[in-house]
Computed example of a mutant assay.
Amino acid sequence: MKTEQANDSPLLQAIREQIEMQPGRAISFRDYMDLCLYHPSLGYYMNSNRKIGRAGDFYTSASVGSVLGDMLAAYLRSFAETRSGDICLTEWGGGDGTLARQMLDAIRSGSPALYARLRFISIEKSPVHRSLQSEALAPHMGACELPHSRGVARGRPLAQYACFVQRAAGRLSGVPDRKP
């Protein structure tokens, strides 16, 4: 039984089609949100409309100032003090790259030695946001990798790019990523 109505939006029609194709006529909340946000032509994050800031639909802390980026940079500096070697920082779904740029700017200006050993990786599904991140992070491209989120980046599975966190002795601490 089709429940489509003439005034359904194209996205609602796509969601209904997905539901109709399932044996139980249901999709998971995860699949529903994936369609709403990342449907190739209809998803919210897949179009070029401005989403963040005065011209967008919502604000983020990074869109109104650099306080969060500065705080993350300060935390990373204290985290890195007790570690040697390269530091890998991975961001999943970093939007337009504003927060990453603010954090990397603060690290580069306040801790050049840490900046030299930092590797920042952004995993972003939206081609629109990947393009915006490329622009925002251009001054930091020596420290950044912006792989496509199609499962493999630079010949490695994306899972190898993940930085892990564990709870140890009642506080959170980072666990270095595994090398291939």
Rank of each mutant, 00 (worst) to 15 (best):
G85Q: 08
T3E: 13
I15F: 12
T82F: 10
N7S: 15
L72A: 08
N7K: 08
F58H: 04
A106N: 15
S61D: 11
D105I: 00
L89A: 15
A73G: 00
R117V: 08
L114V: 05
W92F: 15
D105E: 14
P40G: 07
L42V: 10
G110A: 10
G97D: 10
Y115K: 03
S109Q: 15
L11E: 03
R130V: 09
L76Y: 04
G65D: 04
A74C: 08
R50F: 00
P127V: 07
D86T: 10
A73W: 02
K51M: 11
I123F: 02
D8S: 06
S48L: 02
I15V: 15
A100T: 06
L132W: 10
R16T: 05
T60W: 06
Q22L: 08
S134R: 12
L11Q: 03
S41I: 08
S48N: 13
E124Y: 07
I123P: 07
R101T: 03
V67P: 00
T98K: 05
R50N: 11
F58Y: 15
G110F: 02
I52N: 09
R77C: 14
R83G: 03
Y75P: 02
H129K: 11
P40W: 01
A14R: 09
T82P: 00
F120I: 01
A14G: 06
A116I: 03
R25K: 15
S109T: 15
A80N: 11
D70N: 06
E124W: 00
M33S: 11
D34M: 13
Y38E: 03
L76N: 03
F120P: 02
N7D: 15
A106D: 11
G93L: 09
L11K: 09
N49Y: 10
E91R: 02
S122L: 15
S134Q: 13
K125V: 05
P40V: 08
S48A: 15
N49S: 15
K51F: 01
